[in-house]
Amino acid sequence: MKGGRTQHTFSPPVMEARRWIAGKEFPAERPLINVSQAAPMDPPPEALRAHIAETALTVPEAHLYGPVLGLPALRAELASRWTAKYGGQISSGQVAITSGCNQAFAAAVSAIAAEGDEVILPTPWYFNHKMWLDMQGVTAVALETNAALLPNIETAQSLITDKTRAIALVTPNNPAGVEYPSELVRAFFDLAREHGLKLIVDETYRDFDSRTGAPHPLFADPDWAETLIHLYSFSKAYRLTGHRIGAVITGAPLLAELEKFLDTVTICPNQLAQHAALWGMQNLDGWLAAERLKVLDRRTAIKECFPTLEARGWQLLGLGAYFAYLKHPFELSSLELAQKLVDEAHVLALPGIMFHPAGSNRGETEIRLAFANVNADQIATLFDRLEAYRPIS
């Protein structure tokens, strides 16, 4: 029997990694340290949970279909906050709410690209972006990054063809954690505009950027809406991962095309999630600021612990948001290493091959640590285990 579109891509990496620990038990004195998934594992703060419960009990329309592009109040709040954060002018008519940031990317690509078209992705890339392009018959053109894991404008320009429809950036980056400099993001915007392309900027981890102020100046450009497709996730900010709530900000004409996709796939975003996101933005600024500081403290802990690994030949390639991206010193492949670490060090991490094109030698030596759910003491233990690790042949 012939297969469908899904057979054109690989298995979900996080689900694949979970199979490595299925049925295995780890002793209490040496528990598994899971640094495989970049999502908060704690529930939303109690006040937000109480608001969700109250909404479920007292707002009847929260259980019905809502507007395809999202609640007007939430769209307006996001537009107002982003205008204040980034400068320029953003209207609610340029905002759509989606069922998670992955859906925002899927909707955007569906609106701008057809089978046989191309989208440029810097590597190491976010694997779900690659998977969606595969399933749509859109070619993911790998843009290899430099030693600092930053994409190069000249290299990107050399990859543009008459089939190119967009360049997609993730900053702070998943999987590498790197925060793209403001001037680099602007340069990619100018490159995209020059060639009539869209620039997709996924800022899922924006709330955990180490920098203050606007991370880029794109919204200050009076014609930003003709080129920019901005993606955001409420899930990381307010621990709403299971509620699936994200956003896309772009020109109103393109949103009309996205609306066709969103209406067909989900009809409307989760209503309770939208009320939760709105309440979170209006009431949890202080809480979110404290969460950011926790993430930055973990980032500092990794910097402080890393010299012991460096002495063993490891390299820290990228660090930021939820991620540390490392180069390992062993002869075995990153996939072999990741699988061995489960049984021999009780560490679950993702290998670099999951973030590169098939056959990339670069991915064989890299590994990602997602540290959102490990505290400073656990980070110290993690690095002790990695420092002491020697592969068992």
Rank of each mutant, 00 (worst) to 15 (best):
A47C: 09
R49W: 10
H51V: 12
I52L: 08
T55C: 09
T55W: 00
T55G: 01
A56R: 08
A56Q: 06
A56M: 09
A56W: 04
L57G: 12
V59I: 15
E61V: 13
E61R: 10
H63G: 09
G66Y: 02
P67Q: 05
V68Q: 01
P72G: 05
A76E: 13
L78T: 00
L78G: 04
L78M: 13
A79N: 12
S80Y: 08
R81N: 09
T83G: 04
A84D: 01
K85M: 14
Y86Q: 11
G88M: 09
Q89T: 14
Q94L: 11
Q94N: 10
Q94K: 10
V95H: 07
V95I: 11
V95F: 06
T98K: 04
G100E: 04
C101S: 15
N102T: 14
A104Y: 05
A107M: 01
A108E: 04
S110F: 06
A111P: 04
A111G: 06
V119H: 00
I120E: 04
I120Q: 03
P122E: 08
P124M: 07
Y126S: 11
Y126L: 11
K130I: 06
D134L: 00
M135E: 13
Q136G: 12
Q136A: 15
V138E: 05
T139Y: 15
A140S: 06
A142P: 12
E144H: 01
N146S: 11
A147F: 12
A148H: 13
A148F: 12
L150F: 09
P151R: 08
N152D: 15
E154P: 12
Q157Y: 05
D162A: 11
D162P: 08
D162E: 10
T164I: 00
I167H: 08
T171Q: 04
N173G: 12
N174Y: 15
N174V: 15
P175N: 01
E179D: 07
S182F: 05
R186Y: 14
F188S: 05
F188G: 00
F188C: 02
F189V: 04
